[in-house]
Design a binder for these strands. Structure first.
Lengths: 160, 160
DNA sequence: TTTTTTGCAAAACCTTTGCAGTTGG
DNA sequence: CCAACTGCAAAGGTTTTGCAAAAAA
């Protein structure tokens, strides 16, 4: 049994495909949009709008963050991008691959690990069995205490 | 194996206990704090700061929301209260019982169900087994598609 | 009386909206 | 050329901070 069928199972392997998908729906390839896609294709780590805009890194001229948000929203609508909340702070965006990137976050040290989809599937199996829900851990990750932190001081959780 | 030891396993059954816990740490029982605790003891549903302040219901005179936030933060620090993010929008606060209230949220219809701790424990078992993490679904709930919504239209998830 | 807590004003932070001007195709 | 897109300004929603006045113990 598959985990969850997706409307638009875009498996984007490179920019060209993404651009083709965009054009097919009447979207253009502006400078800001190229920057957004380039940034997202360049990393596994989900990025905040500000990181994408380039306000922090300050390489070339930063894009207007407003425009970045509008692009992210449009791309999310198209199923090209999705966002996740890793804790408090800004939402983080990433390419929506058909095997969504899943994250496991340690609430103590803040570490973010990419989860193996097969392992996530096992968790989803139990959720389905117990709750009847098709769980997704894409908008909110699995949060807990990582083995290192648990070894340092068992118990005493503290939310971020 | 227990799920997760807590620092201060306060099992508050009534206001008096909460007040005693507060006084033991030099805190006073002000009108706003009483309102916060009364509101939280009166419901299972996690409440936003605004709901607690009374801005929405508009019964008596609403408390200053600033003060409500300060109280919630203090109570959270003491382990009496915790907050959860059910989606976008304001955080929602509730009493931190030793069996934390757990929620399962449908991302399609927005329904929020309280989860049986034993069922959550099974999910935690798999997370432990697969990832080595002591998962908590207290800050972020388990999100997915509920059986009703899945029956209406399989696939095609849409984040809120 | 002393320390905590409040209320108000203001700001911080993240995100969205309106609009006139620019640009990609 | 014309719809899509940008940049700027402004606002919206949530949460935090500073400080003098009020209240709890």
């Amino acid at each position: 049994m598959t985990i969850s069928a997706r409307t638009a199972p875009l498996e984007l392997t490179d920019m060209d495909e993404a651009v083709a998908a965009l054009r097919a729906r009447g979207h253009r390839l502006s400078a800001v949009r190229r920057r957004v896609l380039t940034a997202l294709f360049a990393t596994d780590r989900p990025l905040s709008a500000e990181e994408i805009a380039g306000g922090a890194g300050g390489e070339v001229s930063a894009s207007d963050i407003t425009s970045v948000y509008r692009n992210l929203e449009a791309l999310e609508q198209l199923g090209v991008v999705s966002h996740v909340h890793l804790g408090h702070g800004p939402g983080r965006y990433r390419l929506a691959r058909d095997h969504h990137p899943y994250y496991v976050v340690c609430e103590r040290c803040g570490s973010v690990e990419t989860a193996n989809p097969d392992d996530v599937a096992k968790v989803q199996d139990v959720v389905r069995e117990r709750f009847g829900y098709e769980a997704r851990f894409t908008h909110f990750p699995i949060v807990g205490t990582c083995p290192r932190c648990a070894a340092l001081a068992p118990g005493g959780e503290r939310e971020r």
